[in-house]
Deep mutational scan, measured.
Amino acid sequence: DAPDEFRDPLMDTLMTDPVRLPSGTIMDRSIILRHLLNSPTDPFNRQTLTESMLEPVPELKEQIQAWMR
């Protein structure tokens, strides 16, 4: 099983494109984008959230890719 820090906190699946929300939570980009289609909010604190506020986490993405090899 993947380490917890590699798993999306909402869907508990392996992240492939991790992004940091303004709240500091790291999620998979595809999952948070799907959530934003229904509700333009951070799913953990209900603060306003837009796609432009998502910050890529390239170092975590590299760690996940290395773990998958």
Rank of each mutant, 00 (worst) to 15 (best):
residue 33 L to R: 08
residue 4 D to N: 14
residue 56 P to A: 11
residue 45 N to H: 06
residue 35 H to R: 05
residue 46 R to H: 15
residue 32 I to F: 02
residue 10 L to Y: 10
residue 34 R to P: 02
residue 4 D to Y: 14
residue 53 M to E: 11
residue 55 E to Y: 08
residue 7 R to K: 13
residue 18 P to R: 02
residue 18 P to K: 02
residue 59 E to I: 10
residue 36 L to K: 00
residue 36 L to I: 10
residue 45 N to F: 07
residue 29 R to V: 06
residue 55 E to F: 08
residue 23 S to F: 04
residue 29 R to Y: 08
residue 59 E to C: 10
residue 59 E to F: 10
residue 37 L to V: 12
residue 16 T to V: 13
residue 34 R to D: 09
residue 39 S to V: 08
residue 5 E to L: 12
residue 56 P to N: 10
residue 47 Q to C: 10
residue 58 P to S: 09
residue 47 Q to W: 09
residue 46 R to L: 14
residue 68 M to H: 15
residue 68 M to A: 10
residue 55 E to K: 11
residue 24 G to M: 05
residue 23 S to P: 01
residue 25 T to F: 15
residue 1 D to Y: 14
residue 62 E to I: 11
residue 21 L to C: 04
residue 1 D to F: 14
residue 4 D to S: 14
residue 14 L to T: 06
residue 40 P to N: 13
residue 49 L to F: 03
residue 10 L to E: 04
residue 8 D to Y: 03
residue 64 I to P: 00
residue 44 F to I: 07
residue 56 P to G: 10
residue 8 D to E: 03
residue 33 L to G: 05
residue 58 P to C: 08
residue 20 R to V: 06
residue 63 Q to E: 11
residue 10 L to D: 01
residue 51 E to T: 09
residue 57 V to A: 08
residue 57 V to F: 08
residue 21 L to Y: 01
residue 41 T to Y: 14
residue 47 Q to A: 12
residue 13 T to Q: 08
residue 67 W to Q: 07
residue 12 D to Q: 14
residue 45 N to Q: 06
residue 16 T to W: 11
residue 37 L to W: 10
residue 59 E to N: 09
residue 55 E to V: 14
residue 60 L to M: 08
residue 40 P to V: 07
residue 7 R to E: 02
residue 62 E to R: 13
residue 50 T to I: 10
residue 29 R to I: 06
residue 18 P to G: 03
residue 58 P to M: 08
residue 22 P to F: 01
residue 51 E to S: 11
residue 2 A to Q: 06
residue 61 K to L: 13
residue 65 Q to Y: 13
residue 50 T to D: 13
residue 33 L to S: 08
residue 15 M to P: 01
residue 39 S to M: 08
residue 7 R to A: 03
residue 65 Q to V: 12
residue 47 Q to K: 11
residue 62 E to H: 10
residue 48 T to P: 15
residue 43 P to K: 01
residue 29 R to W: 08
residue 23 S to R: 03
residue 67 W to P: 05
residue 64 I to E: 03
residue 12 D to F: 15
residue 48 T to N: 12
residue 35 H to I: 10
residue 51 E to Y: 09
residue 36 L to Y: 01
residue 69 R to W: 11
residue 15 M to V: 01
residue 5 E to D: 10
residue 22 P to Q: 03
residue 36 L to M: 08
residue 43 P to Q: 02
residue 30 S to R: 11
residue 16 T to F: 11
residue 52 S to A: 14
residue 21 L to S: 00
residue 6 F to L: 05
residue 38 N to P: 01
residue 66 A to E: 15
residue 43 P to L: 03
residue 30 S to M: 12
residue 13 T to G: 06
residue 8 D to Q: 02
residue 65 Q to N: 12
residue 44 F to E: 03
residue 21 L to Q: 03
residue 69 R to H: 14
residue 44 F to C: 06
residue 56 P to F: 08
residue 45 N to K: 05
residue 8 D to F: 03
residue 51 E to K: 10
residue 40 P to A: 12
residue 13 T to A: 06
residue 12 D to Y: 14
residue 66 A to F: 10
residue 5 E to W: 14
residue 37 L to G: 09
residue 64 I to Q: 00
residue 56 P to C: 08
residue 25 T to Y: 15
residue 48 T to D: 12
residue 2 A to G: 07
residue 42 D to A: 00
residue 16 T to P: 04
residue 15 M to H: 02
residue 32 I to K: 00
residue 15 M to T: 02
residue 42 D to I: 01
residue 53 M to P: 01
residue 23 S to M: 05
residue 53 M to N: 07
residue 14 L to P: 06
residue 63 Q to S: 10
residue 52 S to N: 12
residue 11 M to Y: 11
residue 37 L to C: 10
residue 41 T to I: 09
residue 36 L to P: 00
residue 31 I to W: 07
residue 38 N to K: 14
residue 23 S to H: 05
residue 57 V to D: 06
residue 41 T to R: 08
residue 58 P to V: 09
residue 7 R to V: 07
residue 48 T to H: 15
residue 35 H to D: 01
residue 27 M to F: 06
residue 60 L to R: 01
residue 1 D to L: 14
residue 34 R to W: 11
residue 55 E to S: 10
residue 60 L to C: 07
residue 47 Q to D: 13
residue 19 V to A: 02
residue 38 N to T: 15
residue 23 S to Q: 04
residue 37 L to N: 11
residue 48 T to Q: 12
residue 65 Q to T: 10
residue 18 P to F: 03
residue 24 G to I: 02
residue 15 M to D: 00
residue 50 T to Q: 09
residue 36 L to W: 00
residue 53 M to F: 04
residue 58 P to F: 09
residue 45 N to G: 09
residue 32 I to D: 00
residue 22 P to N: 02
residue 53 M to H: 06
residue 7 R to W: 10
residue 27 M to R: 02
residue 47 Q to F: 08
residue 13 T to I: 12
residue 20 R to E: 03
residue 35 H to Q: 06
residue 6 F to D: 02
residue 54 L to W: 04
residue 30 S to T: 13
residue 39 S to N: 11
residue 44 F to Y: 07
residue 11 M to L: 10
residue 32 I to R: 01
residue 53 M to K: 05
residue 68 M to L: 15
residue 44 F to H: 04
residue 46 R to C: 15
residue 57 V to P: 03
residue 64 I to C: 07
residue 33 L to D: 03
residue 33 L to K: 09
residue 32 I to C: 04
residue 51 E to M: 10
residue 54 L to D: 00
residue 41 T to A: 07
